[in-house]
């Protein structure tokens, strides 16, 4: 009996990774994870009615609602993407080991790196699709609401007989609070942060013994990541007075290598305030994201390649 012709040419790594990624994505989708979108829709609707006390003049009326929509939406996106990234990644590997499905996969001509990369990509695909859906919902509602605010304000300004250039400036200000390119950049930043945390969870799950352990440690590192920069700065300022700083520099380098600095992603808050997100900054965040993903995957592979089942 001859082997099938396709076997003669060993498939490309990319094709195999894609098979595992789409499978992991299907697995997670069939776990009904998209139900959280209903919660997101509720949050979004609630944010429409969440009126902060009015501190500004009537010319700013409605703008705070637009900010609230963005703030609540991006907050929910961050929460869902981080939880999805950590829990899904922490779940997939131990489940395969426990159910012995991993045996049947690794008994096929599947390199362990392909398996890991496929699983991570599957989770990232899920996070990406979820964020895209949430983004579409947010952008849609924000678009409608911005037009409503704009119409109100224009009526208000016309009634007061504002000059044309002032009305134009008001219009620009209001549109800056609506669905802008920077807002899409902020959503992409949320995805990049989720990418880093998912690959970190993958690394932890290669040596952890349970889903719970992986989840807890990943969340801890996520929170530490928000204080990492401050701690590093404080440490450096202390060390600078005592030595030439080589030790301090190496320690901070190691810390920065292992623990990502999530403060870099605080640019999202500026976007909520209506500021423009420079493209260079987005490029920098993308590079940082890529660096950590590659670093964590290689580290995961080094551990996973030696693992016995």
């Amino acid at each position: 009996m001859n082997p099938l012709p396709a076997i003669a040419a060993i498939p490309e790594h990319a094709a195999r990774i894609a098979v595992i990624a789409f499978h992991a994505f299907t697995q997670l989708v069939r776990m009904k994870v998209f139900y959280f979108l209903a919660f997101f829709a509720l949050i979004l609707i609630a944010s429409n009615f969440f009126n902060l006390p009015q501190h500004e003049g009537p010319e700013a009326a409605g703008v705070d609602v637009l900010r609230a929509i963005k703030s609540w939406s991006l907050g929910a996106m961050t929460l869902f993407s981080v939880v999805l990234s950590i829990v899904s990644t922490a779940l997939l590997l131990p489940k395969d080991v426990e159910d012995r499905t991993l045996y049947t996969i690794l008994a096929k001509p599947v390199p362990r790196l392909d398996y890991l990369a496929g699983k991570l990509l599957g989770v990232l695909l899920l996070v990406f699709v979820s964020l895209a859906m949430m983004d579409a919902l947010m952008t849609g509602i924000l678009h409608i609401r911005t037009n409503m605010v704009l119409a109100d304000q224009m009526t208000f300004a016309e009634a007061r007989g504002w000059p044309a250039e002032e009305m134009e400036a008001l219009k620009t200000d209001i549109l800056a609070q609506g669905p802008t390119a920077s807002l899409q950049g902020a959503v992409l930043s949320v995805f990049l942060r989720a990418t880093i945390i998912a690959s970190l969870a993958l690394l932890i799950s290669t040596f952890s013994t349970s889903t719970l352990f992986t989840t807890i440690i990943a969340f801890l590192i996520y929170f530490i990541g928000h204080f990492q920069a401050d701690a590093r700065a404080a440490f450096l300022s202390q060390e600078a007075g005592m030595s030439d700083g080589i030790l301090a520099k190496s320690v901070t380098l190691v810390v920065a290598l292992v623990l990502p600095d999530f403060q870099l992603f605080n640019v999202i808050d500026a976007v909520i305030e209506g500021q423009v997100m420079p493209l260079v900054l987005l490029g920098k965040l993308t590079l940082i994201g890529l660096f950590y993903v590659v670093f964590y995957i290689i580290a995961s592979w080094l551990i996973f390649a030696k693992k016995e089942f």
């Binding site: 082997p3 499905t101 045996y103 049947t104 001509p109």
Partner: peptide, 15 residues
Amino acid sequence: SRNEVGFLPENPYFY
């Protein structure tokens, strides 16, 4: 080496 082999583990659980 795994191109030529098929494996059925004990008590398998598939997806």
